[in-house]
Simulated assay, not measured.
Amino acid sequence: MADLREQIDMTHRTCAVDGCERDHTAKGYCQAHWREWRTKGVAGKSFPVLTVHTCTFSGCEKPRLSRDLCQGHTQQRKLGKALAPLRSYHHTGLRDEQGRKRCSSCKRWKTIANFYPKARHADGLTGYCKRCDRDMRLRRNYGIGVEQYGAMLAAQGGGCAICAVTPPEDSSLAVDHDHACCPDRKKSCGSCLRGLLCEDCNRVLGMFRDDPARFQSAIGYLTGSCP
């Protein structure tokens, strides 16, 4: 504590970071730089050398947030999960000599065109490539991966299972499933998948609520055979 007082003149009412003229509120920092130091362990380009209390989880070097744990391990505890090492994202912005980026999932080096833009990331791109992102979404919502999706699409001749229209290069067909089995329209157990549909056909099924009687009535109306 004595060293801290020597480094920071507590009678000086402005922030200890060079160039910052805001009043200090804690540890000699203004509110913004104190929050930056509290979460990142640093504050601005020039700051006093303060003692940063790190997380007590073995091998974790992140600043301590609550009850001796960092933010990530605190979140694990809140969710009732067993404490485990946090995934490192430091490599997601690296590039090789050809300017390619390495996918965090498949670990393959791919061109920038294979990643979606994401403004919140340091390099402006997602950590997962488009293929892995698609694979994770399919597995999370329908219990299949991109390989199973490709097999279903090939079995349908590359087009919609109803109208046979092929999707544009920058889009894909919707995965249709039996809503009587899984009422959630965005998720399926994986065993009730019916096929891949274009946007129009998928919308029609939803509007007709998968009722065959409505489709028969619509056919009769279109063919002029209604009584």
Rank of each mutant, 00 (worst) to 15 (best):
A164S: 11
M152S: 10
C30F: 00
G93Y: 04
R185E: 14
T111F: 10
E61K: 13
K187T: 15
Q7V: 02
K186S: 15
N202Y: 00
L50S: 07
S88T: 15
D135S: 12
D123H: 09
A82H: 12
T223P: 02
Y89T: 08
D123S: 02
K130G: 02
D178V: 05
A155R: 14
T92E: 14
A16R: 04
R120Y: 08
G190L: 00
H53R: 11
L138R: 07
V52D: 00
V204N: 01
L69Q: 05
L153R: 05
G72Y: 09
H121D: 12
C192F: 01
D184I: 07
N141Q: 14
A154R: 14
I162T: 08
K62E: 08
R137M: 13
D178H: 11
A154P: 00
I219A: 13
K101Q: 04
D170H: 11
H12S: 10
V204L: 15
Q156V: 00
C30T: 01
Q7S: 12
C192H: 01
D68W: 10
R134M: 13
V175Y: 03
T126I: 03
M10L: 15
S58D: 13
A180W: 07
K40I: 03
C181A: 11
P63V: 07
E169K: 12
A113F: 06
H12K: 15
E199V: 14
D3E: 11
